[in-house]
């Protein structure tokens, strides 16, 4: 193959030299200017809890919708001293978690862990770990649709106005409709919250069981939506309240079972079909928590 003249290899312009990882790319893949741009968006997001900050999302080597927002946020926060944990559906070993972890291993060569307490930075899709997050941890959510009002109003130019003027009445209409139809609020995941008494925010598609964990958390919570080009955040110790009615309070229910592996009664469970007759088994979705409990 003929070498083209107009292609310049990244390594010629690398900022960070001399590390034993894939030399083709900068530390944690993104170039330093992009990281700077993303860090600025993150800082702005932390200053205005729950507000969606537009950022110039980059094309990543994994598809949009597969965590590109989270990956960009993680890449921008990562330092060589960090210990990274990646989970998808609560588990460290699901295909997408494995794939993203390998991506960071390859591009940054940092330490990874499956143990929640040992991680300094955790990227997640769809769950918050059962082990409480602690001070100095950064918790990054992958977000598909950052706009909680999108189902009411698809136009971004309109939803921006609704947020800035706190016109949130219509948000409760959906909850009202649920109750009048079925006797309770039907939203089971991506259950909208109000952050710091100001912005209505989409918590990403975590089950509503996890919503209370966001409230007053000592960790920094960051949300990245790559395709939709938005970053938002919850600073440590911030009030996060799930929307509800006074007489129909928020109810973070889960399956009424205990984990068949570790016996835990108050963790979120995956349902597994174990035979052709459709018999079911329930196990913790947080694999790290389940392992620790079982081994105790």
């Amino acid at each position: 193959m003929r070498k083209t003249n107009n292609v310049i290899k990244i390594k010629d312009f690398k900022v960070d030299k001399g590390l034993p990882f894939d030399q083709e790319y900068n530390f944690a893949y993104l170039d330093e200017n992009t990281k700077k741009m993303i860090r600025r968006a993150i800082i702005k997001a932390l200053c205005i809890p729950g507000y969606q900050v537009p950022f110039a999302s980059r094309e990543m080597p994994m598809p949009y919708g597969w965590g590109t927002g989270g990956v960009q946020v993680t890449a921008s926060c990562l330092t060589k001293r960090d210990t990274l944990k990646i989970i998808d559906q609560g588990a460290d070993d699901t295909t997408n978690a494995v794939s993203i972890r390998n991506f960071f291993k390859k591009t940054s060569n940092i330490k990874t862990t499956e143990i929640t307490e040992k991680a300094t930075l955790i990227q997640t899709r769809h769950r918050i770990p059962e082990t409480p997050l602690k001070k100095k941890q950064i918790f990054v959510y992958q977000v598909p649709i950052p706009e909680p009002l999108a189902f009411l109003e698809p136009k971004v130019s309109e939803t921006i106005k609704m947020h800035s003027l706190s016109e949130y009445g219509a948000m409760h209409v959906k909850l009202y409709e649920d109750i009048s139809k079925n006797g309770h609020i039907e939203t089971a995941y991506a259950y909208p919250v109000k952050t710091n008494d100001r912005y209505i925010m989409d918590p990403s598609p975590i089950p509503k069981f996890d919503n209370p964990k966001m409230n007053n958390s000592p960790a920094i919570q960051l949300f990245g939506a790559g395709r939709e080009q938005r970053i938002y955040a919850i600073p440590p110790y911030t009030k996060v309240k799930s929307l509800d009615f006074e007489d129909y309070p928020f109810d973070p229910f889960k399956a009424e079972h205990a984990c068949d592996i570790c016996g835990s009664k108050n963790t979120y469970l995956d349902e597994i079909i174990v035979d052709d007759a459709g018999n079911k088994s329930f196990i913790c979705s947080d694999t790290d928590f389940c392992n620790k409990r079982k081994n105790k």
Binding site: G169, H172, V173, Y176, I179, S180, E246, D247
Partner: peptide, 27 residues
């Protein structure tokens, strides 16, 4: 009106937009 929202939801929206948060009262 919102045609995809029930009659009660339509009336209730106005209340919720001015801060009503008690389902029973709205209803």
């Amino acid at each position: 009106l919102r045609l995809n929202v029930s009659a009660g939801g339509n009336i209730g929206e106005k209340l919720m937009s001015v801060g009503y948060r008690h389902y029973g009262n709205i209803r």
